[in-house]
Design a protein around this nucleic acid. Structure first.
Length: 482
DNA sequence: GCATTCTTAAACATCA
DNA sequence: GTGATGTTTAAGAATG
C-alpha cells in the first residue's frame, strides 16, 4: 500500500493557499497612526536585527550568540506595545489566530498572514515537505544533547508540524522505520544514570550528518506547474523565487570556503527548502529551530519568517545577486545518474566544493530576473536541503558492503550498488560495511550548512521586516497624500 | 520504461 | 499482559 499524497491542487484553496504561497497577499494592511508607529518600531527592530546579523557574519557563525540577540530583539519587539507573538498552536494543538485583536494592525500585518500561511501549510493538514529523515534530523539537531528518544522525536515533529497531530498514526511507524533503516541515525547507549524509560536515544551519526544536511539542502520539488517548467514563457504560478537560483548567502563559510564561488540554489528548490512532490505548494518557511532558542522564539522566528518571506512583491529591492548571471552558472544537480555523486560519504564531502562551484548545472533557460529580496535567504535553506539530499542518496548508494572499497571510485554504477546493497538485510549490510575512507574533516562545511539552515529564517525576517516596513511606510505616505 | 528514493503498512521481536 | 520501541520486509508512489 503506497502513500497517497494529497494532490496539491486539491489541497490548495484558491483563496488562501494560492495567494499566500504566491506572495500575492499585500504585505500588510494599511494601518492607522498606531500602525505607523509600530512600523517605525519594526524599522528599528529591523536595524537592530540587521546589526546583530552582521555581527554574526563577522563572527563566522561560530557562535549562535547573535541569534540569541536577535531572538531577544524579536521578543522585545513582540512585547513592546504589540500583541505578543503568541505560539501558533493553541493548547489543544490546533492552530489559530489570536482571538484578541485589540492591538494595532502591525502585528496582524506581521503575523496575521504568517498565521494564515502557517495555517495553510502546517495547520491545515498540509504534509510537511520534508522527508522523515529530515524531520528526524531536525528534531535531533534541535535537542540540546543532539539526541532524542523516539518519543521526543514524535513530540518535536508534532510541535513543529501539527499536520501529524491529525495524521494517521502510521507516521510514527515511519519515523521508527527511518530511524532503524537510515544509518544516518544511530542509537546511543543510554546513560545508566539517565532514565528515559523504554527505548534508546537516537542521535545523528556524525559520519552521515553531512548527508542529512545535504538532504535538507536539496529537496527538489516536483515542477508540476507549467510555470515552473517553462518559466520564460509561462506566467509564474509560484513566486519568482522559484524560478531563480539566487545565491547562497555570501557571508556564509560555504561561500568563503569556495573563494567567493557562490552556491547557486538549484532550480527546483523552493524557498523553504521544501520539496514539492505532487503535494500542494508548501508556502511556509519553517526554519530549523535552534537549540538555544526556545520553542516560543522558534515560533516567532518561524512566524515572522513565514510571513515575511512571502514578500515577493518587492523584487526591485533585491540587492544585486552575487551569483553570476551567466547562463552557464545557473545550475541544477543531476546526481542520480551522475557517477561522481555515487560515491561514499567521504568523497561526497570532498565533492562539496564541487557541489558549490562546479556541479550545479543548468537545466532551465534563464530569464530576465527580478530576484526577491529574501530569495537569497530562503535559498540558503533550500540549498542546504538540496545538498543534503544529494548526500543522502549517495550515502544510500554507498551503503553496501562494498561501499568502502568503492568509495573512491567515481564509477559506481547503479547495478553495482543494487547488487551489493540489496542482497543483505540492512543490519547485516551495516555490519558488513567495511572501513570507510576517512571522512573529510570539513566540519566547517557541516556547521556552515547547519548554520545556513538556521540563518535562513532569521535572515528572511530581517530582510522582510525592512522590506515590508519600507513599503508600508511608502504606502502610508501615498495614502496620506491621497 | 527503468532506477532510485521515499512513504506507508504490516508483522514480529524485544523491552520496560 | 500491555504498550512502546525497534527491526525488517514489502509494496506503491513520486521522481529523475
Amino acid at each position: 500500500m503506497g502513500p497517497t499524497m494529497p494532490p496539491s491542487k486539491k489541497a490548495q484553496s484558491p483563496s488562501s493557499g494560492a495567494s499566500a504561497s504566491q506572495g500575492m497577499t499585500p504585505p500588510y494592511r494599511q494601518g492607522d497612526a498606531a500602525t505607523a508607529a509600530s512600523e517605525a518600531e519594526a524599522a528599528d527592530l529591523s536595524l537592530s536585527l540587521s546589526a546583530s546579523f552582521s555581527k554574526a557574519e563577522d563572527e563566522e557563525l561560530t557562535s549562535l550568540s547573535w541569534l540569541h540577540e536577535s531572538t531577544d530583539l524579536l521578543n522585545s519587539f513582540s512585547h513592546s506595545g504589540l500583541r505578543s507573538v503568541s505560539p501558533l498552536q493553541d493548547p489543544d494543538g490546533q492552530h489559530s489566530r489570536s482571538p484578541s485583536s485589540s492591538s494595532p494592525s502591525l502585528e496582524d500585518a506581521l503575523l496575521g498572514d504568517a498565521h494564515s500561511a502557517y495555517d495553510l501549510a502546517a495547520g491545515a493538514n498540509r504534509k510537511p515537505p520534508y522527508s522523515f529523515s529530515c524531520l528526524i534530523f531536525m528534531a535531533i539537531e534541535d535537542a540540546p544533547n543532539k539526541r532524542l528518544p523516539v518519543k521526543d522525536i514524535y513530540g518535536w515533529i508534532l510541535e513543529h508540524f501539527p499536520y501529524f497531530a491529525s495524521a494517521p498514526t502510521g507516521w510514527k511507524n515511519s519515523v521508527r522505520h527511518n530511524l532503524s533503516l537510515n544509518k544516518c541515525f544511530k542509537k546511543v547507549d543510554k546513560d545508566r544514570s539517565q532514565s528515559i524509560g523504554k527505548g534508546s536515544l537516537w542521535s545523528i551519526d556524525p559520519e552521515y550528518r553531512h548527508n542529512l544536511i545535504q538532504a535538507l539542502k536539496k529537496t527538489p520539488y516536483h515542477p508540476y506547474s507549467p510555470g515552473l517548467a517553462t518559466p520564460s514563457t509561462s506566467p509564474p504560478t509560484l513566486p519568482q523565487t522559484f524560478h531563480h537560483s539566487p545565491p547562497l548567502w555570501s557571508g556564509s563559510p560555504l561561500f568563503r570556503k569556495n573563494g567567493g564561488v557562490l552556491l547557486q540554489v538549484p532550480r527546483g528548490v523552493i524557498q523553504n527548502g521544501a520539496r514539492i512532490r505532487s503535494q500542494a505548494f508548501f508556502p511556509v518557511i519553517r526554519p530549523l529551530p535552534v537549540s538555544p532558542v526556545g520553542s516560543r522564539t522558534s515560533a516567532i522566528r518561524s512566524s515572522l519568517g513565514d510571513y515575511l518571506s512571502r514578500g515577493q512583491d518587492s523584487p526591485s529591492r533585491y540587492s544585486p545577486p552575487l551569483c553570476s548571471e551567466d547562463l552557464q552558472d545557473d545550475h541544477t544537480y543531476s546526481t542520480a545518474k551522475s557517477p561522481s555523486r555515487l560515491c561514499s560519504p567521504s568523497s561526497e564531502m570532498d565533492d562539496d566544493d564541487d557541489i558549490i562551484a562546479v556541479e550545479i548545472q543548468s537545466d532551465v533557460k534563464p530569464e530576465p530576473r527580478e530576484i526577491p529580496l529574501d530569495s537569497h535567504i530562503t535559498s540558503a535553506a533550500a540549498a542546504a536541503n538540496y545538498i543534503s539530499q544529494q548526500s543522502l542518496r549517495g550515502q544510500r548508494r554507498s551503503s553496501g558492503p562494498g561501499a568502502g572499497t568503492l568509495a573512491g571510485s567515481s564509477l559506481w554504477t547503479k547495478n553495482r550498488a543494487r547488487c551489493i546493497s540489496d542482497t543483505l538485510p540492512l543490519k547485516k549490510r551495516r555490519a558488513a560495511a567495511v572501513e570507510k575512507p576517512p571522512e573529510s574533516d570539513d566540519e566547517e562545511m557541516k556547521e556552515a550548512a547547519g548554520s545556513l539552515l538556521h540563518l535562513a529564517g532569521v535572515r528572511a525576517c530581517l530582510n522582510n521586516i525592512t522590506n515590508r516596513t519600507a513599503k508600508g511606510q511608502k504606502e502610508q505616505k501615498e495614502a496620506l497624500r491621497n
